[in-house]
């Protein structure tokens, strides 16, 4: 009997058009049967499957006056948050039967670049060109209260991401760093307790693994870095100060990307990493079987050349773990891919 080792591959399922101009972001609904997209055309489009084909179900317009940079579904799947260059963040829900904008978060001085829901759905973080990161609390029906305004980055903040199970927030910035924050229960105020410094240019995006003890970041310096949290009294003997965890860069993936890496997605089921790059390529990395937890090695298992005809802005694994990937690009297209490794 002959065993044939198949190469892992990314198959295009469908190409979706409909947005005018750049598509900035796509976000899976938590159940993985629907997703939302947004972009330069100031609209949000909701997509789901009709038979075998993905198609537009709803188009949300008039929520924003300028480009919509990011959209995110709440963990319960009932709310959608959109971050826009018009300095506002809109919250959409379909309590009335169809999706409507029922709250607008104002406060950022100018362009809002990123938005993220905490795992409980009780908190929302936003970030933007004014260098600040804001934490909002859901305070009741369509009411959002500002919990914190964090001014620790020196430049534009590109993206925010929550720990998968705790109220710990991370932000990536044009100042080349990542900052990590949590709340001080003594006065309910938030502060930065770790700064991750190693990237040599803008950090564009970041993603926690399923445990929240590792963080992957991607940058304009063409690298991806993996960071690990070392808690106080860690077995490895890494010294921590002030009883706070320290985050160390334990792996740098360099030499793979030829341009800026705009986005990274860490699949919480398979542990696979997917990256979106300015060289129009989507890459998939897999941790080696014999990888040292304190100095892991990752292998590039799949390179999808010409995944788009221009910059790939966003890449995201289907949260159900079915190995489906969504991507979108400056070329105005959204693509759905299926990853297979055997």
């Amino acid at each position: 009997m002959i065993y044939v080792t198949k190469m892992p591959k990314l198959d295009l399922e469908q190409t979706l058009t409909g947005h005018k101009g750049i598509v900035w972001h796509v976000s899976w609904h938590p159940q993985g049967k629907m997703f939302a997209s947004c972009g330069e055309d100031k609209t949000i489009k909701l997509w789901s499957k009709e038979g075998q084909e993905w198609a537009i179900k709803t188009v949300l317009v008039d929520g924003h006056k300028r480009t919509i940079r990011q959209i995110e579904w709440s963990p319960c799947g009932n709310y959608l948050a959109s971050a826009s260059f018009d300095a506002t963040t809109a919250i959409w829900d379909k309590k009335s039967g169809q999706f409507e904008c029922n709250a607008t978060l104002e406060g950022h001085e100018n362009e809002v670049k990123g938005v993220a829901w905490s795992p409980s759905g009780q908190l929302l973080a936003t970030c933007g060109r004014d260098k600040s990161v804001w934490v909002w609390e859901v305070a009741g029906d369509d009411e959002y209260e500002c919990e914190a305004v964090l001014n620790v980055h020196n430049q534009d903040v590109k993206k925010v991401a929550w720990h998968p199970s705790l109220d710990i927030l991370a932000s990536a910035s044009y100042d080349n760093t990542v900052k990590i924050y949590k709340e001080d229960p003594a006065d309910n105020d938030w502060s930065c307790f770790a700064t991750l410094q190693s990237h040599e240019s803008t950090v564009w995006s970041l993603a926690f693994d399923k445990t929240g003890e590792r963080l992957a970041t991607c940058s304009d310096d063409k690298t991806v870095k993996i960071w690990k949290e070392y808690k106080p009294n860690n077995q490895e003997g890494v010294i921590v100060a002030d009883k706070e965890s320290v985050w160390k860069c334990i792996c740098t993936l360099s030499g793979f990307h030829t341009r800026c890496v705009y986005d990274i997605s860490w699949c919480h089921n398979t542990g696979l990493l997917a990256t979106a790059c300015g060289d129009d390529i989507i890459r998939i990395f897999k941790e080696s079987d014999d990888s040292d937890p304190n100095a892991p090695t990752f292998e590039l298992v799949c390179t999808k050349l010409d995944a788009h005809s221009q910059d790939v802005n966003c890449v995201t694994w289907n949260p159900t773990g079915n190995q489906e990937i969504l991507s979108c690009s400056d070329d105005g297209e959204i693509r759905i891919w299926s990853f297979s490794s055997d």
Partner: peptide, 8 residues
């Protein structure tokens, strides 16, 4: 942060 909430 509280100024924000007051203004809103």
């Amino acid at each position: 942060r509280n100024i924000q909430n007051l203004v809103q």
